[in-house]
Design a protein around this nucleic acid. Structure first.
Length: 282
DNA sequence: TCCTTATGTATAC
DNA sequence: TATACCTAAGGAG
C-alpha cells in the first residue's frame, strides 16, 4: 500500500527491468485490453513517478501509461530463468514481459485505481493538479507554502491534499507532524514559515530513505528499539514509527497516550503532548 | 473460514 | 459526507 516512496521505487524498478527493451504487453484480466494491445511489441523508454502517479513511456507511442495504485494496487516486477514466464494467477490488469534472455523479466499490475493511456495534454492536466513532490529534484516547496499560508484548513488535511504536496500519505503525514512537534489541527495560515521549511527538508530526508529501504522508518535512533529496549515493530508496513497506528499506546518521547481521530475520512494519529500549537520548537 | 481493516482517489449528493 | 473501487493481511472463531 503505497505512498510516494513506493511509486518512486517502482518507477526505478520498472526502468531497471525494461527500459530499452521490446516488451510483450497484455491485459489477462481484460480491463486494459485495448491499451495493452497498442503497447505490445514496443520498446519501453522510461518510467517516471510524480507523487503517487506512475507514467510509463513507449517508443513510437504518443500516449503514456498512467498507473495509480490507489489503496490496494500492486505492481510486482520479477526475474525468472531464461524464457520462463510464470502463469497468471488471479486478476492481472496489465502484464509486461521482457525479452527471452536471462533473466526474463515480468511485471504484473493488480488492483490499480488507474491504468489507462493518456495523451500529452491529458498528462499536462494531471501533472498540473499536483503540488511539489519532495522526491523530485525540480520540486518547488514555495508552491506548497503559498497554498498552506492562505488556508484555514488544518495542516494535517493540507499535507494529504495532493494538489498541495504530492506523494504524502497517511503515514508520512502523521510522522512528519510528530517530528516537527506540530499540532495537526493547526490551521495552515497559522504555521510559521520556518516550520514549513523544516518540514519540507524532513519530508525529503524521510521519503528518500523510504525509497532506499522500501519501508517507512521515522524514529530517531535514540527512540529506536535498540536504545529503548523494545521489540522491533513488525506489521504490514514494517517500519519504526512514532504515532501511526500506535493509538492507545505510550508515546516513545513523553509517555502520553497516542491519540486517533477521523479527519476528512482518514485516521489521524498524534501525540497531544509532543504536538502542541504555540509550543512549536521550544 | 470469515470479518475487519488499510499507506488512495473519484464521483455523487 | 458517503460510496464505490476491489486486494491482501491479520485476527477472531
Amino acid at each position: 500500500m503505497p505512498e510516494g516512496h513506493t511509486i518512486h521505487r517502482l518507477a526505478q524498478r520498472v526502468d531497471d527491468a525494461f527500459a530499452g527493451d521490446r516488451v510483450t504487453s497484455s491485459s489477462p484480466q481484460g480491463r486494459f485490453e485495448e491499451g495493452a494491445a497498442r503497447i505490445d511489441g514496443l520498446t519501453l523508454v522510461s518510467a517516471d513517478a510524480w507523487g503517487k502517479h506512475l507514467l510509463v513511456r513507449f517508443d513510437g507511442l504518443a500516449e503514456q501509461v498512467h498507473v495509480h495504485l490507489g489503496l490496494f494496487g500492486k505492481f510486482r516486477v520479477r526475474k525468472h530463468p531464461e524464457g520462463e514466464v510464470p502463469e497468471v494467477t488471479g486478476q492481472v490488469r496489465w502484464r509486461l514481459v521482457g525479452p527471452a534472455e536471462w533473466p526474463t523479466r515480468t511485471g504484473d499490475l493488480r488492483g490499480p485505481t488507474a491504468c489507462t493511456l493518456l495523451l500529452p495534454d491529458e498528462i499536462d492536466t494531471l501533472l498540473s493538479r499536483l503540488g511539489p513532490d519532495p522526491l523530485r529534484d525540480d520540486a518547488d516547496p514555495g508552491r506548497a507554502w503559498a497554498r498552506i499560508h492562505r488556508s484555514r484548513a488544518p495542516i494535517a488535511t493540507l499535507l494529504m491534499d495532493q494538489s498541495v504536496v504530492a506523494g504524502i500519505g497517511n503515514v508520512y503525514r502523521a510522522e512528519v507532524l510528530f517530528r516537527g512537534g506540530i499540532d495537526p489541527f493547526l490551521p495552515g495560515r497559522e504555521l510559521p514559515e520556518p516550520f514549513w521549511d523544516a518540514m519540507w527538508a524532513d519530508l525529503i530526508a524521510l521519503m528518500r530513505e523510504g525509497v532506499r529501504k522500501g519501508r517507512i522508518d521515522t524514529v530517531h535512533v535514540e527512540h529506536g528499539p535498540d536504545v529503548m529496549g523494545r521489540a522491533p515493530r513488525r506489521d504490514d508496513h514494517g517500519g519504526e514509527v512514532y504515532v501511526y497506528r500506535r493509538d492507545g499506546r505510550a508515546c516513545y518521547v513523553c509517555g502520553d497516550t497516542v491519540r486517533k481521530q477521523e479527519l476528512a475520512a482518514r485516521n489521524l494519529f498524534w501525540c497531544p503532548t509532543c504536538q502542541r500549537a504555540g509550543t512549536l520548537g521550544r
